[in-house]
Computed example of a mutant assay.
Amino acid sequence: MMKRLVYLFLMVLMTACSSIDCPVNNTVATLYQIRNSDGTELKLTDTMTISTVRADENKVVLYNGRDSIILNKGIGISKFTLPISYSHPEDVLLFQFDNNDTDLHVTDTVWIKKNDYPHFESVDCNTAFFHTLTDVKYTCHHIDSLVINNPSVTYDYQTVHFYLYPKSGN
């Protein structure tokens, strides 16, 4: 009888364990690469700060105690990662470029349209949202072009989603 209880306990214990491990890298974000007009990777010489427009208020939230800066004073970078919203059909970003040598202070607005869909791996893991990028629009003060390279945004942190081409001479 005791031997049966031990076997039963072991069976219950083994079936209660999950064989699915939650992913270690569970951040869903977009990767941007800065490029020259010839397609080679470019290090940014201007200081770049990127802010977001809060979708719940539909306005820019800067300098009022609520931090909306998602990349602060990036300089000498050729790649950067930005978060993406979980459940809004469009993200609005403000790319501010500053050059202290020439007193250049320019802001471009970027609109990214996307489809969001939940990603579920196991009851033991948090639900994540993956995205499919569908369109990008932007102003052209400092940005020459911004193109979608890979529209699928998942846990893959090495895939470049956007190529950013600054205007030449910047």
Results as ranks from 00 to 15, higher is better:
127 T>K: 13
47 T>G: 03
130 F>N: 13
25 N>P: 08
68 S>R: 04
98 D>H: 08
96 Q>D: 06
52 T>Q: 09
23 P>L: 03
132 T>P: 00
27 T>V: 11
19 S>D: 11
44 L>R: 05
27 T>N: 14
98 D>F: 12
95 F>C: 01
155 Y>K: 04
63 Y>W: 12
5 L>N: 11
68 S>F: 02
98 D>V: 13
70 I>E: 02
37 S>V: 10
56 D>V: 10
158 Q>F: 00
89 P>N: 09
127 T>E: 04
147 V>P: 01
144 D>T: 11
73 K>V: 00
83 P>F: 12
105 H>Y: 11
157 Y>M: 03
101 D>T: 13
4 R>E: 14
120 F>T: 08
10 L>W: 09
29 A>C: 02
130 F>P: 09
131 H>V: 12
166 P>F: 03
35 R>E: 06
141 H>V: 09
30 T>G: 00
47 T>K: 15
23 P>Q: 04
68 S>E: 10
146 L>D: 05
88 H>A: 11
18 S>D: 12
65 G>M: 06
60 V>Q: 10
112 I>D: 00
49 T>Q: 04
159 T>A: 09
8 L>N: 05
87 S>W: 03
127 T>S: 05
157 Y>R: 12
155 Y>T: 07
153 V>Y: 11
67 D>T: 08
151 P>V: 01
69 I>V: 15
33 Q>P: 10
52 T>G: 11
25 N>R: 11
77 I>N: 05
119 H>G: 01
115 N>D: 12
76 G>E: 04
58 N>G: 05
29 A>D: 07
30 T>S: 09
3 K>V: 10
63 Y>C: 07
38 D>S: 11
119 H>Y: 13
96 Q>L: 04
114 K>E: 04
143 I>G: 07
134 T>W: 05
49 T>W: 02
99 N>V: 14
36 N>W: 13
131 H>L: 04
128 A>H: 13
92 V>M: 11
153 V>T: 06
72 N>R: 13
163 Y>G: 00
131 H>M: 10
40 T>E: 15
56 D>H: 12
131 H>A: 07
21 D>H: 05
50 I>G: 04
30 T>K: 08
18 S>H: 02
24 V>N: 01
67 D>L: 12
137 K>S: 05
69 I>P: 05
90 E>F: 01
84 I>A: 03
68 S>I: 01
34 I>F: 07
120 F>V: 14
17 C>M: 15
69 I>W: 08
80 F>M: 08
133 L>R: 03
85 S>I: 01
53 V>G: 03
92 V>W: 09
163 Y>T: 00
89 P>M: 01
26 N>C: 07
44 L>T: 08
132 T>N: 14
70 I>R: 01
114 K>R: 08
39 G>R: 11
74 G>Q: 11
124 D>W: 14
31 L>Y: 06
59 K>F: 10
20 I>C: 15
64 N>G: 02
128 A>R: 13
32 Y>W: 14
64 N>A: 06
24 V>R: 07
128 A>N: 14
59 K>G: 10
34 I>W: 08
166 P>G: 03
78 S>T: 00
68 S>W: 02
11 M>R: 06
164 L>K: 01
3 K>E: 12
71 L>F: 06
160 V>H: 09
80 F>I: 01
134 T>Y: 08
20 I>L: 09
38 D>W: 02
93 L>K: 14
3 K>H: 07
90 E>P: 02
97 F>S: 12
121 E>L: 14
